Amino acid sequence: MSAPVLVINSGSSSIKYQLVDADTGEASISGLIERIGQPESTLTHRTAEGGHTWNERIADHAEGLEAVVGAFDRYGSPLPEAGLMAVAHRVVHGGERFVQPVVIDDEVEAEVGELASLAPLHNPANLEGIRVARKLFPKLPQVAVFDTAFHATIPERAHRYAVPEAWRTEHGVRRYGFHGTSHAYVSRRAAELLGRSLKEVNVIVAHLGNGASVTAVERGRSIDTSMGLTPLEGLVMGTRSGDIDPAIVFHLHHRTGASFEELDAALNKESGMYAMTGMIDMRGIESAATEGDAAAEAALEVYCYRIRKYIGSYIAALGGADAVAFTAGVGENSAEVRARSLQSLVALGIQLDEEANLTGGPIITTQDSPITGLVVPTNEEGEIAAQTATLLRS
């Protein structure tokens, strides 16, 4: 491994990690700690020899990262012997301050904390991972790579909301966008699959996982994206509502007495596919729809119609597209979602090849389709490692 980077993605009660070669994007070791702070936590550590899972009490992120280091020791690949270039951290919100990866120092750490108000479900956990890792690996460069950074190129006409000026200037209210590392990686891979330079193509990337977003990428630059100030705007997601009339919040506050904190939690954690079906896993929802479950069928239609609307609008925003690329858990694995999302877009230049779509592509449209449909597995950790290496080598 020529340029090993330990990539860490800290959640509120979890730590995902990968040991990635920044030059190839390949991960040799990966793992996940779940249920941090609960009576019993689970650590899964995967190497070339296979996966290893065990349960133990992990009280906090400090113990969690110590457990990660112990897992490397236990299974024959001690981190001190890996020749690490850096520890890289996924940070969800960089606001307007962070539009590129940055080496973390005390000032950066403090600013990531200040941005927590823009991403209260994500940045505090990301910050905790940074604090712990800086203590655990004091001699290694620590780098923050921001989900929002790729979208810093969005023009004002797309990122500005029509709200009072003070909201924008004093409180940072604007469209930021998320899943930036995925959209950057997938748009580049899409160009490679087309056999063209990234600077020559317009790509619409649909990152469809539990969180989901669509981005219009013009010659390698994000020009619009479906998520906004927070990851709540845009597509219907696993537990998030996506686009709604903002007055719904005030309507329910007045009608039910629910607090804004309760309504925020409902829109982020109790809405989306979960609200419509009682399920989050798309495989279960598709299976239920096939078996005649009316709620599941209706939810699929809502989910895919929203995707279809965004794809159509971004074809217009780009003045034409060369490709639509599906990625992430649902986008890569659900032929049904891809088919429904491209339904009725023939007039815009997308002609689905049903057999190719069922087999997973990578090309899922006919040879004479003016816009190519693609399935492109994402590699966010590889992209984070590559951006880290580029920063440190510059």
Rank of each mutant, 00 (worst) to 15 (best):
I8R: 07
S10V: 01
S10E: 08
G11D: 14
S14M: 08
D23L: 14
A27I: 12
I36M: 04
G37K: 14
P39G: 01
P39W: 05
E40C: 08
R46N: 14
G50V: 05
W54L: 15
E56G: 13
R57P: 05
I58V: 13
A59W: 09
A67T: 15
A71P: 13
D73T: 06
Y75S: 06
G76F: 06
S77E: 12
L79G: 01
M85C: 10
R97P: 11
V103P: 06
S117A: 15
P120V: 14
N123S: 11
L127W: 15
R131Q: 14
V132Y: 06
F150E: 04
H151I: 01
A152Q: 12
A158W: 02
G172R: 12
V173A: 05
R175P: 00
G177E: 00
G177C: 01
G180I: 03
G180W: 07
Y185T: 01
R188S: 10
G195C: 06
R196W: 11
S197G: 14
L198Q: 15
V203D: 13
V205D: 00
A206K: 07
S213N: 12
T215G: 00
R219S: 10
G220R: 03
E233G: 14
M237V: 15
G242V: 07
G242W: 13
D243F: 04
I244G: 03
I244R: 10
V249I: 14
V249F: 05
F260S: 09
D264P: 01
K269N: 13
K269G: 08
M273C: 06
M276Q: 10
M282Q: 04
R283M: 02
A289S: 04
E291W: 06
D293I: 07
E297D: 15
L300C: 06
V302H: 09
V302C: 08
Y305L: 14
Y314A: 01
I315Q: 06
D322I: 08
A325D: 02
F326S: 02
A328N: 08
V330I: 15
G331E: 03
E332V: 07
R340P: 02
S341I: 11
S344D: 15
L345F: 04
V346Q: 15
V346P: 08
I350C: 06
N357L: 02
N357M: 09
L358D: 14
T359G: 02
G373N: 00
T378F: 09
E381Q: 11
Q387V: 04
T388E: 09
T390P: 00
L391M: 04
S394F: 00
